[in-house]
């Protein structure tokens, strides 16, 4: 059976991992390649690199990082952050990225989703959506969740699916950083109304949160950062426990 995926997310700035990382056996915890290799070795199913560099010069270093990751890591990885052109995507894929993730740029110009899907195939187009509830309605937010829009999460997700997105990475701003669990109700609604995989993001605090997001949230994959980086939830332990909860997982 197709397994649920566990995806560590690494924030990258100027080619280096930014959030503090507390990982054993790392020579250089700031080196995304070292960290990525470590994650691949302990059973991560995929990786996401989110480039939060502010300048174009800094982004150029990301291409270099992508090459080094592709050279040394034997699992798939996605690169996101500040991607808004076909040329940029072409460069990232040529460096060895498997998928790219677009967010605000898709909201600003939805045709970008079609163009990327047509040129490179849906399989490498992940649309990331940040949303939070306003008066009981899930509204899409831009620029890392700082700018609210009028767009409804579920309508936007449906639209990007129709435009050719291969996957949706949904981050609940209401849950992100809380460590109180994922937005399972919204995730289940997304998963049931769409026919492409949904990655749950935001709120991971313990192992049961992952169990819940796969069972109740019907997520196809779950993404987290700090619980993995600080060793709070070792991936081998997580996967073993998921298996004990009868969730299909790669061991």
């Amino acid at each position: 059976m197709l397994t649920k995926r566990i995806i560590p997310c690494l924030d990258i700035k100027n080619g280096r991992t930014v959030k503090g990382v507390n990982f054993v056996d790392l020579r250089d915890a700031g080196d995304p390649v070292e960290l990525a290799k470590q994650y691949a070795n302990v059973g991560a199913d995929e990786l996401v690199f989110l480039d939060i560099s502010a300048t174009l010069e800094a982004r150029a270093t990301t291409l270099d990082m992508v090459i080094r990751v592709a050279e040394q890591v034997n699992i798939p990885f996605t690169v996101g952050g500040g991607i808004s052109s076909i040329e940029h995507v072409d460069a990232l894929l040529k460096c060895g990225a498997d998928k790219v993730s677009i967010n605000s740029s898709a909201v600003k110009r939805p045709d970008l989703v079609n163009e990327l899907a047509n040129k490179f195939g849906s399989q490498c187009v992940v649309v990331a959506i940040d949303a939070k509830q306003i008066d009981g309605n899930w509204k899409v937010h831009l620029a890392g969740g700082s700018i609210p829009t009028d767009m409804d999460l579920f309508e936007w997700a449906k639209e990007v699916e129709q435009r050719g997105a291969g996957e949706i990475l949904f981050t609940s701003m209401d849950h992100d950083g809380t460590k109180n669990g994922f937005a399972n109700e919204a995730l289940a609604k997304l998963s049931e109304s769409l026919n492409i995989p949904i990655i749950a993001s935001g709120g991971a605090g313990n192992v049961l949160h992952f169990v819940d997001t796969f069972k109740e949230g019907k997520a196809d994959a779950a993404l987290a950062a700090s619980v993995f980086h600080f060793g709070e939830i070792p991936i081998p332990d997580l996967k073993k426990e998921l298996k004990e909860h009868h969730i299909e997982i790669r061991l």
């Binding site: 059976m1 197709l2 995926r5 291969g166 492409i196 995989p197 196809d220 790669r250």
Partner: peptide, 9 residues
């Protein structure tokens, strides 16, 4: 769900 995406045996 299509594509079939991820790890399978």
């Amino acid at each position: 769900k299509v594509p079939h995406m991820g790890w399978n045996v």
